[in-house]
Structure formats: C-alpha cells, structure tokens
Amino acid sequence: MLQPRSPSQEPGRTGRSPAQPTAPVLALVAVLLLLVAGCTAPTPTAGSYRDAAEQTVTDLLSAVGTGVLLVEIHRGDRAFSPYAETTAEDAEDAARSIADTFGTRQPPTAGSDALRAELSPLCDTAVNALADLRIALKRDDSAAVEAAGRTLRAVSSGLSDLEESLS
C-alpha cells in the first residue's frame, strides 16, 4: 500500500530528529532514581535508628491497641468469632512484621544499643501477647483472653513511656 510520506517521518531514520523526546526519557530516569533512593536502606546513623525506633513504637502501639479493644469486645460478647479472630490475626501479623523489621536493623552506636535493649523485649512481649490473644479467641477461653489483655495493657504503657522518652 503506497502511502505518501508524512513530514514527521521524513528526517533520516539514522539520526535523531529534533522532535525525538529526550525530555520524557530524562524525566523517567529522574523518577526511577527517586524511587530507588526511597527504597534503599538509609545510611545507619544514630538519628535514623532513633526514627526507626519511634516508628516501630507507633506501629506496635497500634497493633497492641487493637488487641486491647478486641479484649473489651470479647468481654462484652459483642462480636462473632470470625471477625474477632481475623482482626486479632491481622494485628498479630502486623506486630510480628514490625518487630522483625526493627530487629534486623544494625544498631550503629552504643547509644542505639541501649535503645535496642529497651525496645526489643517490648516487641517480643507485644507479639507474644497478641499471639496469646489469637489463640485464646480461637478457643473462646475468656480467662486466657483477659490474661492476654492484661499483658497487652502493660506493654502498651511500656511502649507509651518509651515513646515519650524518644520524642
């Protein structure tokens, strides 16, 4: 099918015509660089370790808070078990993932070691308490649920104290 060449197809196929878009390519590279910069682990300084600890505390408080609310809901027999169990599992999974992410971080300085010594046990207790809650809910064991609730409240106040000392 013979088609007249349109002007935009004219310039020699070998060279780059002025209309060749290098600007979008550059923009794409810039975005990719930004993405990569966002994804790589930040340089480990005491400040960034502290920030990570703060974030960990906030996220753990959220998971623990969910657990506490679930204990109250169970006490009042206000929910069906699929809902309570699913929400408890989600909280436990979230806490576990948060604790793991923090635990794999390398503390850069001695000061960070102290922070880690304070936060790590809290992480473990939180995760275990949420696991206990999940197990107790599945068994519909009210005594165990209450016990998990007590532990969760204790962890929560420990985390809140730490949060205050960090901010």
Partner: peptide, 19 residues
C-alpha cells in the same frame, strides 16, 4: 493509639458500640 491498617480495624468502632 490504633492506626488503621486492616479492614477489621475500620469496623472496630461499630462493633464496640453496637455489638
């Protein structure tokens, strides 16, 4: 102190209040 990250948490206020 709960920051919503799962759908179950979205329903918590309703479940707490209305059972």
């Amino acid at each position: 102190g709960v920051q919503v990250s799962d759908l179950g948490q979205v329903a918590l206020p309703v479940v707490s209040t209305l059972g």
